[in-house]
């Protein structure tokens, strides 16, 4: 059974329509890549799932309709969002960022430190003074501390040095292998996505234009819709 289901989802920013019909399914324990060129509606889809913006159509998580839920209820229902641009709590330390969001469950400070040892080393440092890569690790750690069943990573490796990207990808692979958590990934690195994602969904101008197994994604399709 699908954990997250979007069907015919539409959304707009004020009077400007942004999504015209997004269909997307993420099963329990599945890693799904949400792909498409810039401005095609990937982040808007994530914002609609998290109820940061309103939407219409089918939007269900674990059998519950997310429409009408405020953002914090969506997060409590089990959707952990790592937003584009990291967005840590700048004035708080690494540990404070993690415990401010913590909810009872499998994830603890020690487990997050195990996934990202750098966060353990910088436990008392303010988030604002961390490097971009460390802030990204913190944003992922903070989302994990809410003990989500679905983790959404929006451009988690954007603008990071190659070595830091490798650390983030290693963590994502570890999450897939070790937790059974469902993950919805937005990223521009087709090479990395193909090693970790089970399925891919491609958006074009606010619509789902292709969905299928990652292995079925042909060069022709990626050239046409993703531009690589």
């Amino acid at each position: 059974m699908s954990l997250l289901t979007l069907s015919g989802l539409t959304a707009s920013y004020g009077a400007t329509p942004a999504l015209f019909g997004v269909d997307l399914e993420v099963g329990a324990g599945e890693v799904v890549a949400l792909m498409g060129r810039n401005g095609m509606g990937k982040t808007t889809t994530v914002r609609a799932i998290s109820r940061i913006i309103g939407s219409e159509g089918t939007l269900r998580f674990d059998g519950h309709d997310l429409h009408g839920m405020p953002s914090h209820r969506v997060a409590r229902a089990g959707i952990g969002l790592v937003p584009e641009g990291r967005r840590c709590f700048a004035d708080l330390t690494v540990t404070e960022n993690l415990i401010a969001a913590a909810r009872l469950g499998d994830w603890s400070l020690d487990r997050v430190h195990g996934l990202f040892p750098r966060l353990g080393e910088r436990a008392g440092q303010r988030a604002a003074s961390l490097s971009g890569g460390e802030q990204q690790m913190l944003a992922i750690g903070r989302a994990l501390m809410t003990n989500p069943r679905l983790l959404i990573l929006d451009e988690a490796t954007e603008g990071l040095a190659p070595i830091v990207r490798q650390e983030i990808w290693a963590a994502i692979r570890a999450l897939k292998a070790g937790t059974g958590m469902a993950i919805l990934l937005i990223d521009k690195s087709l090479k990395e996505l193909s090693t970790v994602a089970d399925r891919a969904v491609i958006l074009e101008r606010g619509r789902t234009v292709w969905a299928g197994a990652m292995g079925a994604l042909s060069d022709e399709i990626t050239q046409q819709y993703v531009g690589v």
């Binding site: 998290s50 940061i52 405020p70 953002s71 914090h72 209820r73 997060a75 409590r76 952990g80 969002l81 937003p83 967005r87 709590f89 700048a90 004035d91 708080l92 404070e96 415990i99 401010a100 969001a101 913590a102 909810r103 903070r142 989302a143 501390m145 809410t146």
Partner: peptide, 25 residues
Amino acid sequence: HAPFGLALGSARQAPMRVETVGLSP
């Protein structure tokens, strides 16, 4: 210094970020 106070302070600065981690400002 408790999670409540940390979240409250964060809600003052960035309410949407607090919402997305499951807390109601």
